[in-house]
């Protein structure tokens, strides 16, 4: 039957516009980042050298290319500031991902155990905050965590503390903001896996004499590993390069790599070093990105 090839040719045509768009606005720009990371900062407009000018001819291009150097990367590797930023980004992202898992798993598990008819509602309730602005959600916590904010007021009223606690500009505040902002990204993949688990497996484990905790540990948890992996990647990768949350909630003494990039670009106006930082960030993320892509494709084949 011809049904197999249905839509194939028009679908190929459909690919042209989005394909071209993504190549031009997603793939090609990385080439510019790479080129700029090998350039020198200059007091000019745009603020870097060399500038490739195709109209200047081949010889000028070669001359410009010969000026490219690895100086920026040498700077990144020799200055402790950048290495520390990279290391801190990884630790912070890993810690936040672990916290997200600890908090998200019970919620996702409870959602999957709700009676079927309530599950779409629960899912909706988890998604809705994701639709409100990221910036607003971080800002809401500034309101609560500031010196005379609601949290300190409540703690003082309950006599838990005798003097206001400093929350803002600490790592605690940053982790709260991160967990809060990324929680739906963790809950949804976990829920997707847990809700597909056959409950009879746990019943079988119970029939064979295992306690609820044992059957969770030996049946449910191993079977939900794909969801754990998806949720962890979905949170970890963007968290490494996160800018807004550490900038607004954490102290300024130990910046993350996204903040370093921002600082180099907007404050120091050193575009080449900012580009080199972006390349470094990308290099750090390459492995998790590849894993993520594999994962997505596997899910696509078997939806």
């Amino acid at each position: 039957m011809s049904g197999r090839n249905l839509f194939t040719r028009p679908a190929r045509l459909a690919a042209i516009a989005p394909y071209g768009w993504m190549v031009l606005f997603f793939l090609v720009p990385f080439g510019f980042v790479l080129k700029l990371s090998l350039s020198q900062v200059a007091n000019a407009q745009p603020p870097y050298l060399p500038v490739f000018d195709l109209s200047a001819g081949w010889r000028a291009l070669v001359a410009a290319a010969s000026v490219l150097s690895l100086d920026n990367f040498r700077l990144l590797l020799s200055d402790d500031l950048y290495l520390a930023a990279g290391l801190r980004s990884l630790t912070v992202a890993a810690t936040a991902t672990a916290l997200l898992l600890l908090l998200g798993y019970p919620v996702a598990y409870a959602m999957s155990r709700l009676p079927r008819r309530f599950q779409p509602l629960a899912m909706m309730l988890v998604i809705v905050p994701f639709w409100t602005s990221f910036l607003i959600r971080v800002y809401a916590w500034i309101n609560i965590l500031q010196h005379d904010g609601l949290l300190n007021q409540v703690l003082l009223a309950l006599h838990v503390v005798s003097a206001p606690v400093v929350w803002l500009s600490t790592d605690t505040a940053m982790y709260i903001g991160m967990v809060y902002s990324y929680l739906p990204f963790m809950i949804l993949p976990l829920y997707a896996t847990l809700s597909k688990l056959d409950p009879s497996l746990c019943e079988a484990a119970a029939d064979l004499g295992s306690s609820p905790l044992q059957s969770f540990w030996r049946v449910t948890l191993p079977l939900s590993l794909p969801g754990i992996g998806a949720g962890a990647l979905l949170c970890f990768i963007p968290l490494v390069g996160e800018f807004v949350i550490p900038d607004l909630l954490a102290g300024s003494d130990a910046p993350m790599i996204g903040q370093t990039l921002w600082l180099e670009f907007f404050t120091n106006r050193d575009w080449p070093v900012a580009a080199a930082t972006a390349v470094m960030l990308l290099a750090i993320l390459l492995l998790p990105l590849v894993i993520y892509d594999r994962f997505q494709r596997r899910q696509m084949v078997r939806p």
Binding site: P29, P238, G241, F243, W262, D293
Partner: peptide, 19 residues
């Protein structure tokens, strides 16, 4: 193509913005 469509979902915004 599918890689280019999935990567921006998790790509740190500072990289997308700068590039």
């Amino acid at each position: 193509f599918s890689g280019m469509l999935y990567a921006p979902l998790v790509m740190p915004e500072v990289i997308t913005g700068l590039s």
